[in-house]
């Protein structure tokens, strides 16, 4: 499935330093994800064309662009969710902490435990709230005792800002919560596995403004501990929550940079047009 580009580490590192030359934050943290020349095909149709993108550790990176531009596809490549789609082929390199995630040696289970994902539509399992959060730790065997698991569930729900609302009804089905609560439950479920990266695929598009605001606040808190990559069709949201922004158009990565730069002072004309609402 993966065509490995033969490149030495030195080359990659030198490329890294080139891309990172536009300073984002003062300390310029080491990138978590490094992607080089990523092409994605659905059957005969090419969806992504040679994406080179670095994702900085501990911060929010927003992927923006008009619908159908490939930003969700790219996101799903980052924890190999595209594996489940028939006829999807990927070439190029996606490195997580220097390791190619499409390498044969990489177990996709292990990868996804490290890179969690939250989907567009809240999708809690038809189980109790507790079981939803405990699902990940249970399958991975992360906790060794019931009390440890209880603690982990509580901790995760607290982090997702949901504990106060559901503490007394952990046995009720997760599907009975409101949309915003369901989405935070899904975030808690992802956190419980202790990933380093959380991918979010338009996490607020199915929610009302108040629930959206809560999730956005949550992202602000979570970025201290996790690397967050968010796909959003809302430029305002990208501006509010992210530190870095990448603009996709027609399967290409047009521009990437500090969020403030992208919105105030884009380099590319296409970015300018999109930001100002001429298309998309």
């Amino acid at each position: 499935m993966t065509q490995m580009n033969v490149k030495t580490d030195d080359e990659i590192l030198s490329e890294n330093s080139m891309t990172a030359s536009s300073p984002v934050t003062q300390e310029a943290p080491r990138p978590t994800f490094v992607t080089r020349g990523v092409d994605v095909f659905y059957g005969d149709k090419q969806a992504l064309f040679g994406i080179d993108l670095d994702v900085q550790a501990s911060g929010v990176t927003a992927l923006i662009g008009p619908s159908g531009c490939g930003k969700s596809t790219f996101l799903r490549c980052m924890n190999r969710m595209n594996d489940t789609i028939d006829g999807c082929r990927i070439s190029g390199q996606i490195l997580l902490d220097g390791e190619d995630i499409y390498d044969d040696q990489v177990d996709v289970v292990h990868l996804r435990a490290r890179v969690g994902i939250v989907f567009q539509k809240p999708n809690p399992f038809p189980k109790s709230i507790y079981d939803n959060v405990a699902y990940g730790p249970r399958i991975h065997g992360i906790t060794s005792s019931k009390s440890e698991l209880d603690d982990l569930v509580k901790h995760s729900l607290e982090k997702a800002g949901l504990w106060g609302e559901v503490a007394d009804r952990l046995d009720e089905p997760g599907t009975g919560l409101s949309g915003g609560q369901q989405q935070r439950l899904c975030i808690a479920r992802a956190i419980a596995v202790q990933p380093t990266v959380i991918l979010m695929d338009e996490p607020c598009s199915a929610l009302d403004p108040i629930a959206t605001a809560r999730i956005e606040d949550l992202m602000g808190e979570l970025r201290e501990q996790f690397t967050i990559v968010i796909v959003t069709h809302s430029m305002q949201q990208a501006a509010r929550v992210s530190q870095r922004t990448a603009f996709f158009h027609l399967g290409e990565l047009v521009e990437v940079g500090a969020t403030a730069d992208i919105f105030s002072n884009p380099v590319e004309q296409r970015t300018q047009d999109y930001i100002t609402g001429r298309f998309g």
């Binding site: 399958i139 991975h140 065997g141 440890e148 982990l152 504990w163 596995v193 202790q194």
Partner: peptide, 27 residues
């Protein structure tokens, strides 16, 4: 567990990943 003030033992990322690694073969 309903005691909201109880300190939670947090499990850090490396312990969790070690557990995942251990379980892989069996799974």
């Amino acid at each position: 567990m309903n005691d909201q003030n109880a300190p939670t033992r947090s499990i850090d990322n490396s312990t969790a990943m070690a557990a995942v690694q251990r379980s892989l073969g069996k799974r």
